[in-house]
Computed example of a mutant assay.
Amino acid sequence: MEHQVPVALVVGVTGITGLSLAQALKQPHCLGGGPWKVYGAARRPPPNWFPLSTVDNFITFNAVNSTDTLGKLSPIAGEVTHLFWVTFQFLGDEEANIAVNKAMLQNVLTALTSTPSSRLTHVTVQTGTKHYMGPIHDPGNKSIVLNGHAPPFHEDMPRLPYPNFYYALEDLVASHAPSLSYSVHRATIIIGASARSAMNALMILSTYAAPPPPVAVPLPGSRYTWEHFCDMIDARVLAEQHVWAAVTERGKNQAFNCTNGDVFTWKSVWRVLSEVFDVGFVELDESDEFDLVELMCDKGAVWDEIVEKHGLEKTKLEEIACFEAIMPVLRFGFQHVSSMSKSRECGFFGHADTFKSIRFWVGKLREMKLIPSYEYVAKANGYH
């Protein structure tokens, strides 16, 4: 019998995980019988920096709109074998987040399964460590320190008594079993390259450090996070885990944490970024604490000048960097660390060196013309 090539629909393909996922699926030796056929989907047309060669077809549709979703996805419903859900809408209020994100995923699932010729077999859903911490970004929650679980986080911890759209998405995909298998990927802080992920920590810190600052640039935060452990996940390893779970029996109908497998302190990360951007490293001075959100709120015009002067992709600072999102992370009163034991026990061994990941992805951001080059930053700071 002729081997059928698996067909992926990556919803959120221009995001921080989506690009790495599409690239992984197109590799000749990708698990599942690669290279896969890949449909990439997003709410907006592909930006200039997105390499269209990584997908076989790019589909633009609004997942909130059931009619638009059905119209755009019905023609491929008889082809798609695997749905990779790596998108979300963040409205601030968690009840609103639940409503919109659940509706989006339900609309896509309906479009892909409502035809008799449907081939869909598996859905991967990306969530995160808010699963264990509670709604740290909810404006209704004024306290950053919630009554969350004690780290290290592991997958069998019970749900917290807070509304959380991650829980709603897990329940939705589980409700389709056994007709469909699913996997949930609880990613830690993701490091990758995209100008369409406003909560991309590396992009946020790059837009802060890359423009011509003083010779020494301080990092805001608390002494606790400066000195205690945290973890990250390289988007390439996260993509690898998505694919592994989608085609491996032990990955089915499970939730998995995903980290690089090592830990860091923000002090050590800031030292690496100071080297990468050729700015002076500054020790944390809590007596000189400043509000990063307030500091950057009027820097849009400065970013526009940098974009124009150095031929970068046309981006707006408020669209590519959410400084409100990074502040809770830099002020955690606990060690943000997730266990990878379950993944390893089930056969997933992907890992990365976080500091090498940072250097790699900063290079990619420069290569994609999303941030200024090293030569520009160095010259702006009077080093060369």
Results as ranks from 00 to 15, higher is better:
348 F>Q: 12
278 D>A: 15
122 H>Y: 02
33 G>E: 06
126 Q>W: 00
148 G>C: 08
180 L>F: 01
66 S>A: 13
268 S>P: 03
84 F>Y: 15
267 K>A: 08
281 F>R: 13
150 A>I: 11
40 G>W: 01
356 K>R: 10
287 S>L: 07
202 L>C: 04
330 L>G: 07
288 D>E: 14
107 N>M: 04
314 K>E: 15
45 P>K: 12
40 G>A: 05
114 S>R: 15
337 V>A: 10
73 L>V: 09
294 E>N: 14
132 Y>L: 07
91 L>M: 08
17 T>K: 00
25 L>T: 08
1 M>Y: 10
14 T>Y: 00
333 G>A: 11
346 C>S: 10
224 Y>A: 05
368 M>D: 11
166 Y>L: 06
39 Y>N: 05
203 M>A: 06
200 N>T: 04
20 S>Y: 04
311 G>M: 10
347 G>M: 09
222 S>G: 09
248 T>D: 05
42 A>R: 03
154 H>V: 03
63 A>M: 04
340 M>A: 08
166 Y>Q: 13
353 D>K: 03
246 A>K: 09
250 R>N: 11
302 V>D: 14
168 A>F: 00
253 N>I: 03
328 P>V: 07
258 C>W: 00
302 V>C: 05
299 K>T: 06
115 T>M: 08
168 A>I: 03
272 V>I: 12
25 L>V: 06
337 V>P: 15
290 F>K: 11
382 G>M: 06
130 K>G: 02
118 S>E: 12
231 D>T: 05
76 I>H: 13
336 H>V: 03
104 M>F: 02
275 E>D: 15
121 T>D: 10
187 A>L: 06
208 Y>L: 01
282 V>R: 12
68 D>L: 05
148 G>R: 11
188 T>K: 13
337 V>E: 15
297 C>T: 09
309 K>H: 11
334 F>I: 08
148 G>Q: 13
64 V>N: 02
371 I>V: 14
73 L>D: 13
202 L>R: 01
47 P>G: 05
361 W>P: 03
56 D>W: 12
278 D>H: 15
292 L>H: 02
41 A>W: 04
295 L>D: 03
3 H>Q: 12
260 N>D: 15
123 V>K: 15
89 Q>N: 08
312 L>E: 14
23 Q>E: 13
